[in-house]
Computed example of a mutant assay.
Amino acid sequence: MARNTELAELAESIFAASYDKDATGLDAAAWKACAESGLTTLTDPEVGGTLEDSAVLLEAAGAWAARVPLAETDLLGGWLARAAGLAVPDGPLAAVTAGVTGGDADTVSVELRRVPWGRSLAAVVVLDGDRVLVLDTAGAAVTEGANVAEEPRDTLRFTGVTPVAAAAAPAGAAAELELRAALGRSLLLAGAARGALARSIGYAGERQQFGRPIARFQAVQQMLAEAGSEVAAAAAASAAAARTARTAGFGDPATEFAVAAAKARCGEAATAVARIAHQVHGAIGFTREHDLRLVTTRLWAWRDEDGNESRWNDRVGELALQAGADGLWPLVTGRP
């Protein structure tokens, strides 16, 4: 995928301006800047961005460990609301699949667990079987939680609340929502891997041992080369998945195959790159004071979120078997 240089530069400038290695929770300054630039609704037809544009944005967000729910808002919550014909609420969003119980004809009750950025969301878009509900988080009781990267993963409890809006779910919504979540996470993983590699190369060039930078030692060079190959593989797989989703649509088996392969490959890269980054940094890389943890903890957290490596590798195998001998080549290459 040709990198959208202008968009990449805009995203990098926003994330760099508000970067704070010691902060947690929503980065309000970065969110405001992204919203004003149209990046929080990038794939909205009225904005005109593509999934490949979103790939550039999310990779940058991953590299900078940006504390903004861009994938959750645009690729998931915003998409699901639009697909159901509902107005998209302003502010940070998330989308979840959950079984909702009704208090009466007009109200619902539900407990939503490990909602990304739950405490900071304006609304949650819920896929409840054959309907889509928009729930205002002002009516939720929040139990705060976090993943290993200290990103909010909260429990939201709604009791007898009236949805902001409701509509019939579009056909295939659950399958598409799952693929969109895996694609978004793959792109973030690719970016975080790039960020970890960049920090490692920089440190290896600065750290002196036996009178010279450790980057001049062959063993360190080999580790960095291995990490570089993993970063390249993750970037290629996630970019290919975004491109396939744009051209073929999420209902095409080729997209499911590409997304499954990307999430599995990015999860594999996450493990290798995090390991190598910490080996290069030595003991200093394990301290809370060092910003390496911002990307490596995200690599560890995100490789398991939205389906881990084993789950998506299994799906790759299932799709290959379903395609059969004659259909495997077109499935893998996208060509007849």
Rank of each mutant, 00 (worst) to 15 (best):
T50Y: 06
E144A: 15
L75Y: 08
R67I: 03
T41Y: 02
A35T: 14
G48K: 13
A87Q: 11
T43C: 15
D44P: 11
A138N: 13
G139C: 10
E46C: 07
D90Y: 00
A63R: 15
G48H: 08
G78E: 08
A61Y: 01
W64Q: 03
A123N: 06
L39A: 07
L86S: 09
L39Q: 04
A140T: 02
R119G: 10
A105N: 05
L42E: 11
L93W: 02
A105R: 08
V126C: 01
P69K: 12
R131A: 06
D106H: 07
V88M: 00
R67P: 01
L135D: 05
A94C: 14
A95L: 01
A123G: 02
D128C: 05
T137K: 03
A138K: 15
R114K: 15
E52N: 13
A60L: 04
G129P: 02
E111A: 14
V125A: 00
T101C: 06
P92G: 08
P69S: 13
E52A: 09
V88F: 00
V96K: 06
A140P: 04
V126L: 00
E111R: 13
G62L: 11
V115K: 07
G129M: 04
D90M: 02
P92S: 04
A71N: 12
S37E: 15
R67A: 08
R131P: 00
W64A: 03
L133K: 03
A60G: 10
V125Y: 00
L39H: 08
A83Y: 03
G129I: 04
V115F: 08
V108P: 00
L135Y: 03
A81R: 00
D136Q: 05
D104G: 12
D74I: 09
A66T: 15
L58T: 10
S109A: 12
A94P: 08
A83E: 12
A122C: 03
L39N: 05
V96Y: 05
V115D: 05
T41R: 15
L51D: 11
T41N: 14
A61I: 02
D90H: 02
L133Q: 04
R114V: 06
G77S: 11
L93P: 05
G78Y: 06
A122V: 04
A71I: 13
A84L: 05
G49V: 14
V142R: 07
V126D: 00
R119T: 14
D130F: 07
A63L: 03
G77Y: 07
L57M: 02
E72I: 11
A83I: 03
V132D: 04
D128M: 02
T73V: 12
V134K: 02
P116F: 13
V142M: 09
S37D: 14
A123E: 04
A81K: 00
L57G: 01
V125L: 03
E46M: 08
L42W: 14
T101Y: 08
E72G: 11
A140M: 07
V88S: 01
S120K: 00
L86D: 09
G38M: 12
G49Y: 11
A141N: 14
T73Q: 09
W64P: 00
V56E: 05
S109M: 08
R82I: 11
T101F: 10
G78D: 12
V96R: 12
V47W: 06
E52Q: 13
L121D: 09
T41I: 07
E52D: 09
D74F: 09
T101E: 15
G103D: 15
D136T: 02
A140W: 07
A60K: 10
V124R: 03
A81S: 14
A141G: 12
V47P: 04
E59N: 10
A83M: 05
